[in-house]
Design a binder for these strands. Structure first.
Lengths: 326, 326
DNA sequence: CGGAACTTCTGGAACGTTCCAGAAGTGCGC
DNA sequence: GCGCACTTCTGGAACGTTCCAGAAGTTCCG
């Protein structure tokens, strides 16, 4: 058998020759242009199909300067929160006729800058940044080449860059209110994050505690064995962790030292990732509307492509998902 | 501020004009061709840099028929086993100068065929298929357009398509041998799979049991509450699940009904995903050499691109990872 | 000093599209 | 039977590269 690549793909010219028309007409017919008679269109479609013609997106992109490709930048593939957002973005992109090219950083912060450059060189029409590890200056330079939208990352707004986020402060408040309503007073917050989302959740927690008259009970600890030990010993009855991953850590630790969840200790996470669903007991957590995030992110990019120049920052309402752990 | 896209990207011609040479020379200089004097090369590089020139991969692809793009096809982003393989592939691809475009199916089997088509239209130079949901005929037609390699999916070999797999039978044997060496005799296999990998693991389990003189103890059950109940009640002391996901199900169920793991019931998974690391107790499991899989997959594609026409099927040795659960 | 052999550079064609200006062909009113 | 509008179709240029054939310019040797 000859190598697979031996027979070159048919081009517009091949179809045109076979159908006895000009290449331009084939192009028009295949793209459904109005000024083509029904008879010839039919014939051209049949011939194209017979030859197995497929248009070259590369040539098309070169000509019209649009690739219908979107780049998604993500810190690492093994963080379910990020991958789930990407899935939502991809779905929305597909619905809008775009494909998504993924670039991830596998923890190495420096790598991401290079990957962003690669995406731009590839000719993506827009960039969805899910990871907060991409340095701001990289985003700013990238935005000069293609519209950029940050999603799922609460951060100081960057000029020229749109964003879609959930309201982390409000999400934290939902958690605190739920716990208070269940009779808890000694509610601690577990967090290891110095990143924007983490900070917002923390301040949301503190504000909600104060609003509930529990300002004196505010307690923030890091998810480390010693700190968790102390937490479990000292009469804390509920823990709000900054994300599902850390909530599971708390959960495991509590169970390890013989506490019952939620009877002895209620545990709440954030993000509603598959970890929350899989945990035992299943985690109460805060859900961000990931599908909406995806849809809006793609929509914002398209608006930019259509010429919008002012910045848009969308904030979505989070929702509390009550499961067994609190 | 004018729209971001207002200033068009500089092209070879712009650089050539600015440097006072021909576009061809700029092209040669930037690609490091030998026949360019050191002085002019230097000057061209400086000018290109000043103008912020970046070559258009689209134009390059069109001209030389190579996109340096690899497509990765995966069932869904939320299966850590698959995403972790993709991460390995991407890493290997990057090392070889390729970028990876991801297409996933989100469970909808039909969608994948369309996504494969999209990748091919995009002009990928090769296809890495991680998901076993892609129908064989789709793979076969795809292979006529670009080399295809299946990875992490044990399956009947398809003519014209390479593969990289781990030896599932041997992996299952490793598990059984380990359990037998720990004194277990009543070792059950939990599986819900009728797919190639699942079948291979099952038959590996059965063969190893027989080899250990435990043919009479062979017991295969589905990961459903009733079946697991029965399992836990009837004196089974060890369970080998067909993957980490189902192992975690078994684990949770056993703990729920008050069994201790591993004291009352040993549990072993397969794949060594992050689930295994995160489980409590941490799962003993079988590790496939994912990084090697990625490297080999990319290597096989490159060989095809360089003209190899005979099929290659690589089988990697799995490794037992002993953790707390067995 | 003529020309062979290098080195260094150049212009044009090509890749497969899209798009534009305009060429045929058709129908119609007068 | 002529002009006009309308429909249907066409050829060429363009997108930004790469690559090839070959043009200058330089060196070197007899």
């Amino acid at each position: 058998m000859p190598p697979a690549s031996s027979r070159p793909r048919p081009t517009l010219l091949d179809v045109a020759a076979a159908a006895g028309v000009s290449k331009s007409l084939v192009s028009l017919a295949l793209r459904g242009d109005a000024g083509v008679s029904e008879r010839t269109r039919e014939r051209i479609l049949v011939v194209a199909d017979q030859l197995g013609y497929r248009p070259s997106l590369t040539a098309r992109t070169l000509k019209q300067g649009r690739s219908m490709l979107l780049g998604a930048v993500i810190s690492s593939l093994d963080n379910p929160y990020h991958t789930e957002i990407v899935a939502a973005v991809e779905q929305a992109a597909e619905a809008a006729g775009f494909s998504v090219v993924l670039a991830h950083g596998s923890r190495e912060r420096g790598r991401l800058a290079g990957r962003v450059q690669q995406l731009l060189d590839l000719g993506v029409d827009g960039l969805v940044v899910v990871s907060s590890w991409v340095p701001e200056e990289v985003l700013v330079t990238a935005a000069r080449r293609a519209p950029v939208v940050m999603v799922g990352r609460t951060a100081t707004p960057v000029a020229g860059i749109d964003s879609v986020n959930n309201d982390d402060e409000q999400g934290a408040a939902l958690v605190v209110d739920h716990l208070v309503a269940s009779g808890h007073r000694r509610i601690a917050h577990v967090t290891s994050s110095t990143r924007p989302a983490g900070i917002a959740r923390r301040s949301g927690y503190e504000a909600a505690m104060r609003a509930a008259g529990l300002g004196a009970e505010v307690r923030v600890v890091r998810p480390e064995p010693a700190a968790l030990d102390a937490l479990v010993q000292d009469g804390t009855t509920a823990v709000f962790a900054r994300n599902d991953v850390e909530a599971v850590d708390v959960l495991d630790h509590a169970l390890d030292v013989g506490r019952r969840v939620p009877a002895d200790l209620a545990v709440v996470g954030y993000d509603d990732t598959m970890l929350a669903r899989r945990a035992r007991p299943a985690l109460t957590t805060v859900q961000q509307q990931r599908d909406v995030m995806g849809t809006r992110a793609v929509a914002l990019l398209r608006e930019r492509l259509d010429g919008r120049t002012d910045d848009v920052h969308e904030v979505l309402e989070p929702r509390l998902v009550v499961r067994a752990s609190a």
